[in-house]
Design a protein around this nucleic acid. Structure first.
Length: 217
DNA sequence: ACATTAATTGTGT
DNA sequence: ACACAATTAATGT
């Protein structure tokens, strides 16, 4: 909401100082817009034309995609210092977004116009490295997800999902419902409840209302 | 403080 | 998968 270039510059220095060269930071603060989103706000939805791409300052953004049958499936999360790498391919080919980005927690980010990315690619080495790195990271993560789908049964998928949440949210106490887990893993609430109960009996976690404590060590 | 509703979780078929 | 019970949180009076 704030468009003050000095403020943007300060934020960029704080979070991207080691990654971006000075001239690039100047460029971004000139063309970027600072925006915040509340939990569950959409940053971008499927089928919408993308005019801006986000650089995440802080918070957590969930990237998901729709199945044939209207089912939403979780792809990965963006956190501080990330950008939506896939959107670059999308916008170079002028296409509309194939993904949905929603705020999982309160999010602050800098939105910059898509047509700047090509220009910066040519001008700034640190930008090129940044883009390729984020592509690499996303690819690794997606391969992890595919592995999970192909090789693990639902109980280990759930446990993997939970420990991953612990990492991402920085807390062993997850405020999450069985229904939400079912949505993310494209399963039904009842089977999640049953498997969570089993995991609790195995001592891997403790169930509470709207809350799951994951034992880790 | 109490009653009513909605949301979440547990269980049996 | 479905139906329903049990428990808890949220809201109104």
């Amino acid at each position: 909401m704030k468009k003050n270039p000095a403020f943007l510059k300060e934020q960029l220095h704080l979070h991207f100082n080691t990654i971006f060269e000075k001239r690039l930071i100047n460029e971004i603060s000139k063309h970027g817009v600072y925006k915040t989103y509340e939990k569950n706000d959409l940053l971008i939805d499927i089928g919408v034309e993308m005019t801006h791409i986000p650089l995440i300052i802080n918070g957590l953004v969930k990237i998901s995609r729709e199945n044939n049958n209207e089912h939403e499936i979780l792809l990965y999360y963006l956190e501080e210092g990330d950008t939506c790498a896939i959107s670059f391919a999308n916008c170079i080919h002028q296409s509309k977004s194939m993904f949905r980005a929603s705020a999982e927690e309160k999010v602050a980010c800098i939105m910059f116009p898509v047509d700047k990315t090509e220009e910066w690619m040519i001008k700034f080495k640190t930008w090129r490295v940044f883009i390729i790195d984020s592509y690499h990271n996303r690819l690794e993560e997606m391969i992890g997800v595919i592995n999970g789908l192909a090789f693990f049964k639902l109980d280990s998928r759930i446990y993997k999902y939970l420990t991953n949440q612990v990492k991402i949210r920085n807390s062993e106490d997850l405020l999450i419902t069985h229904q939400e887990i079912a949505n993310d893993l494209n399963s039904s609430r009842v089977v999640i409840s049953r498997i969570l109960k089993m995991l609790e009996q195995q001592g891997k976690l403790k169930l509470d209302r709207r809350k799951i404590h994951v034992h880790v060590s």
